[in-house]
Amino acid sequence: MSIETIISQFVGGLSVSMLLFLVASGLTLIFGVAKVFNFAHGSFYLLGAYFSYQAIALFNNFWAGVIAATIGAGLIGMLLEICFIRKIRGRSEEGAFQILLTYAFILIIDDAVKFIWGPEYKTIQKPPSLAGTLEIGAVSLPKYNLFIIVLGIVIVIVAWYILSRTKTGKIIQAASTDSQMVGLLGVNVSMVMSLVFGVATAMGGLAGAMAAPLRTVTSGSGVEVIIESLIVVVIGGLGNFWGALLGAVLIGEVNAFGVLWLPQWASLLSFVVMIVVLIFKPKGLLSNEPTRKKI
């Protein structure tokens, strides 16, 4: 295999990784801080794609779609946290309620999307500025994929900065190990959780908008994404932000090269990677155990 193919496959895989990371990091952040497993997280990706479609239809501008997707998904996420998820916090059957509640969100959001935008596939064009390819030597790389990678890296850096360098980030880290104690120090932890929910679902929405030109927009894509993200966070260690990044890169690249080398097995590769990781590291590659270093 030529080096050009490897590079272009690697870049393609990395752009998928970044989109996965946007969804999976939100999922893991919500789990870490609020101890909620948000099965509906993929539905915010779905909402992002449709909000983007709608905004582009109205304003005829790709970036308006990206902004609408991010803000819209984040607001709806925060609203659902405040109106529903918060209400079941602390109940003895909380775990079961969370599953039922977030599963209900999947069904409701799926149907709402079909109801509002109809069941047929939608397509979103790449913005003209990112439509072509970039030639680097003999390799030609799609500009749009490169943009997603850059965006992903920027988000990783911003998230790293917020989590490890700001007081808010430290509150989030502390709350993910002992939220009650954080409250005893005077922090309104409920508000922090709503905020985390909002930011995490906004990132899901952003991923949906950015992925839309690469895939078709359909109401089933939320469920596909949640399964992939679940694999990513399980591989990385549930609740661990860097684990989500590692898992996303691993899965994105394994799939990119798997398609080349083992095409007939491609759809199974993610699961194989997950099983292999779990055999050696049952809690994921970077689990939130006390031995772990700071985020």
């Binding site: 509150i171 104690m181 954080v182 005893l184 005077g186 922090v187 932890v189 700071k294």
Partner: peptide, 29 residues
């Protein structure tokens, strides 16, 4: 959290420090 803001400072018997954060971060929280 409201009682803490009013000025009740509980030091819990089980200590509950944030073990993965630095000593300084614990203090700043």
């Amino acid at each position: 959290y409201h009682t803490a803001r009013l000025g009740l400072g509980l030091v819990p018997e089980d200590r509950r420090i944030f073990g993965l954060l630095s000593v300084k971060d614990n203090l700043e929280l």
